[in-house]
Amino acid sequence: MKLLRELFHYLDVTAANIKIAFLSIIEYPANIIGWLLSNPIQFLVGFATIQFVVNEFGAINGWNYGQLAFLYGLSVISHALSMIFFVNGWFMGWWVLDGEFDRMLTRPMSVVYQFFFTNINIFGITDLVPGVIVFAYGCQKIGFCFTLANVFQILVLLVGATLIRGGVYLILGSTSFWTRSAIDFGAFTQELFDKTTMYPISMYPEAFQFILTYIIPIGWVSFYPVSGLLGIENGLANGQVATWITLFAGILTMLVAAGFFKLGLRRYESAGN
């Protein structure tokens, strides 16, 4: 009963935070228009150029461009969701240096929760637009059926994929507790995820694939669940089981990341050191 009450409390605070995040759009309307142009251009032009090449060659490692669009689109969508909820992991160095955790440590809620959810980055919505467009294009190209079961699978996949991304951001960010420097992991993480989730990872050497499957579970963000969903042989997990492994990998990554964060927080000594 107490647990349930606490859960409701968290949900309540989350709703309030989301409302505040939406209000911040009204504060800077020019900004959101700028990002509404910039982010879609990046992903749409990016996908268009891939398509030109794949058109020329026919397929890449057995993936035709409808299937690639499906993969790319879902990958951009989970990227957008991770931008909305977990982008603070990229900038953790600044939080540590500026002593921002002082305020959170005095509050009765989980610090990991506060770290992510008191600063929801609503501008991440601008990344959703190109993701949905490319995904819809891919669905139409391969004739994907939106049955209830398929929609459910995609939702599970997106939750898992977003958690994997968020977990990796949190682990990278938490290293600042030890290094005590403000390293911006943003560009690096985005590049790494772009190259490993927007293309089939089967094109990389086997050692890379092994790392991306078992050590840093980026392969589960898009490659395995999408190939499972579309029935493309990936040599490991075919069919719907891949989607569930993604969800499991996401929860596991986030738990490990939260543990690592808490370990780091013990070393936290506020600002000025």
């Binding site: 700028g34 990002w35 142009l37 910039s38 251009i41 150029t49 030109f52 090449v53 020329e56």
Partner: peptide, 26 residues
């Protein structure tokens, strides 16, 4: 504020200059 504009320029140059994918494929 031109952060967004700088990003647009960066991505357009990256994709339309042949830096990653040569223009012969376009």
């Amino acid at each position: 504020n031109m952060d967004a504009l700088i990003q647009v320029k960066k991505h357009l140059i990256r994709l339309l200059s042949g830096s990653i994918i040569p223009l012969w494929f376009f």
